[in-house]
Amino acid sequence: MPDSLSFPSVSVQAPVVRLNGLRMDFHTGDGVEQVIKDVTLRIDPGEIVGLVGESGCGKSVTAKLLLGILPMPPAVVKAGSIEMFGRDLAGLPSGEREALKKFVAYVPQDPSAVLNPSFTIATQMIDMIVWYESDRKLATYFRKRHTRTVVSRARDHAAHLLEKVYIADPEQVLRRYPVQLSGGMRQRVLLAMALSGSPQLMIADEPTTALDVTVQKRTIDLLKDLVEREGLAGLYITHDLGVAREICARTYVMYAGTTVENGPTGPLLDAPLHPYTRGLVEAIPSLEGGLPRTIPGQVPDYLAPPRGCRFAPRCPEAFERCRETPERVEQAPGRQVACWLYGKEAA
């Protein structure tokens, strides 16, 4: 195992992630896209949190922000705070920000595309492992990368990681190029890679959409198993409310850059409060058959988003008040919602 002692240690008590009232714009050629309006989100240690919402709501943007791969510019943080492992990212020097990446495991959407086609799995994994051991110094990295003992140790470690994701013949897989592996196998390799740092948090952005249904199931099981075994916290982004119910303790519902509702997954899906959440739940195809009801309209144009509640134009229950932005209120224990239908004044 690579020693993590040379790295800044991270707090395991504080919330792993805390986003508070985050507002973020994209400065594009067409103008300012006000994508993220108010994202408030917390992930506690050892807890898997779901993030659901329609396409284009800003889920991936949120994930990218946490992964540190959102190009800034064009993205500009306008308000709110971002904390990871108890540190405020706003004041963090870029070197330390990069160093934090070691503690974040990333499971991307399309496993075929994120592996480099020109290198074997062994090369890619060894590169990562050795880099994590090199104290962020290129010189150290190159020295170690060309030291036989270091490389063979890293290779053994890679094999060990592959075993952790239940790959039967790790040596065989290590020698392969990505094209030579099946989609499910690649996703597992990615999971193994995700473990090659000292992860505390796993961010999975629709990790199974590119896989066929049977493989999806197995991957989800593996993911759940891993998170439990390694004691990770997780952010799980999905369209699939069923999957969210299965693996996420709590879930955030996001609409047009705002986390409109959150709470324990079961109660949230069983008794949605926000009209948007209700719309999402009703859009699930039921076992009895019949067409699911979809929410009329679409995600707003971020160049000129509606004032107040962004869902109002599509909301069947919208009224005068919705011209203003609703406060987020605690409706039940651990259950928050941002909608004028709830809260003190409405009650």
Partner: peptide, 26 residues
């Protein structure tokens, strides 16, 4: 622009390696 670059960045691989080892080769 390929996803593997974003991925390598996300997992914290250094720019230099990404540009000269991975991207240049392709």
């Amino acid at each position: 622009a390929k996803p593997y670059v974003g991925f390598s960045q996300a997992v914290g691989m250094p720019r230099f390696l990404i540009n000269y080892k991975y991207v240049l080769r392709n």
